[in-house]
């Protein structure tokens, strides 16, 4: 199987000058086929080129002050998370997005997708066509589901296999 066989087409994007709060609303409103909100979206500029990706992790990362480390976060005050979140409210998508997005060609086999996701810690892989234009997204859950189907081929009624 190839990337194109499991990818989900994308039709909603974020833009670099969009405030973070708007990106959050967009992400909340785009539902995956399993009914839960999407956890990451691509960013397209005015010219229609993909310039980055924002995931919920990037939004969480933006809230952590650069000086904080596990040694120091024990000294945080009660509502520090709220204070720090308020500080990033007026920042835009372009400030927090990941700029070097790893993409794959639609003809790439799923073994390569799986390897890339695990080795590079990626949750989703944008899929491009022969013109290098993004046409869809392969999500880690979808690949896992395929693996899970293979693993449970001999599944019995009582939950053993």
């Amino acid at each position: 199987m190839k990337a194109k066989d499991v990818m989900t087409p994308i039709d909603e994007y974020l833009s670099p000058d969009m405030p973070i709060c708007e990106a959050v609303i967009r992400m909340r409103n785009v539902k995956r086929q399993h009914g839960l909100p999407i956890k990451g979206m691509l960013v397209k500029n005015e010219q229609g080129a993909v310039v980055g990706m924002v995931s919920i992790k990037d939004i969480m990362r933006a809230v952590i002050p650069s000086y904080l480390s596990p040694d120091l976060s024990i000294f945080s005050w009660e509502n520090m998370l709220e204070d720090m979140t308020n500080k990033v409210k007026d920042r835009v998508v372009g400030d927090i997005m990941v700029k070097d997005v790893v993409t794959i060609d639609s003809e790439v086999p799923l073994m390569v997708c799986t390897d890339l996701m695990i080795k590079k810690g990626l949750q989703r892989l944008p899929v491009t066509d022969e013109k290098k234009e993004v046409i869809g997204m392969v999500y880690i859950r979808d690949i896992y589901n395929i693996i899970a189907d293979f693993l449970t081929e001999g599944e019995k009624e009582d939950g053993t296999c």
Partner: peptide, 11 residues
Amino acid sequence: LAPVTLLIADA
């Protein structure tokens, strides 16, 4: 000291 300083200034 700088990271602790930044934390205290934020606090």
